[in-house]
């Protein structure tokens, strides 16, 4: 009943789709974590107004579905004059989404830094910039690294939805294939398997990077 050989002619299409998904994930991971770091710092140290604005952003994104955010950006923003291609809209939605989640995660890391360490660093004559990056941010990232990386994987899986605004990602490839050869179950099964492998691979890579980056601390402790 199952017939996977009908998928073989579409190998290129699937690989291209995989490439788009990987690229979207890579960009949104880098950008999203940068947004998250900036917003977390703003929420931790900023004035009342900054904190309120960032807090509303985080809560608004965390409490609405990704697909609605995507539709709002892709269909809604052109209505007020901001036209985006499908790819730009998809990437923007992913950036905004991961930005909000990582803000919350990183903030928890910042809050976990003991006050005494900051005071000690100040006494030792470190500048505020040095204190933020070396004394606060670095250990904070180590603490929240597992939570942050699993959020990146969740965003990768969530990116399947961008196919709905015709970004040619992995899911789009599956949709296209099943519309041509009507092998919908097989196409989706293969693509689901590819997502699963990608998720496992991402976890391995994140673990490997984590071991390298935070190695000196592990041995010291």
């Amino acid at each position: 009943m199952l017939n996977f050989s009908d998928l073989l002619p579409y190998t290129d299409l699937l690989l291209q789709g995989l490439g788009v998904t990987v690229l979207l994930t890579l960009y949104s991971t880098l950008g999203g974590v940068a947004i998250g770091t900036a917003c977390a710092a703003g929420r931790h140290y900023g004035g009342k107004k900054t904190r309120w604005v960032i807090g509303s952003y985080v809560e608004l994104i965390r409490n609405t579905p990704f697909i609605v955010q995507l539709f709002f950006i892709f269909f809604g923003l052109p209505a007020i004059g901001l036209k985006l291609t499908a790819w730009e809209a998809g990437l923007l939605a992913m950036l905004i989404n991961l930005g909000a989640y990582s803000t919350e995660i990183i903030r928890a890391g910042l809050a976990a830094t003991p006050k005494g360490q900051v005071e000690a660093a100040r006494v030792l004559g470190l500048s505020s910039r040095q204190i933020f990056f070396r004394v606060i941010l670095n250990p904070a990232f180590e603490k929240i690294y597992p939570a942050l990386t699993s959020q990146c994987i969740i965003v990768m899986l969530g990116s399947a939805v961008v196919s709905q605004i015709s970004v040619m990602d992995l899911t789009y490839a599956a949709n296209l294939i099943q519309s041509r050869n009507f092998r919908s179950f097989e196409a989706y099964l293969v693509v689901a398997g590819m997502y699963l492998l990608l998720a496992i691979l991402m976890r391995q890579v994140f673990e490997w990077v984590g071991r390298r980056v935070f190695r000196h601390r592990r041995t010291a402790a």
């Binding site: 179950f185 989706y188 699963l196």
Partner: peptide, 19 residues
């Protein structure tokens, strides 16, 4: 179920059962 997109799960149930 944690390693695949929810959208794929939906498609697989929807198309798989009808197949």
């Amino acid at each position: 179920f944690q390693g695949t997109p929810l959208l794929m799960q939906l498609f697989l149930v929807f198309f798989g059962l009808s197949m």
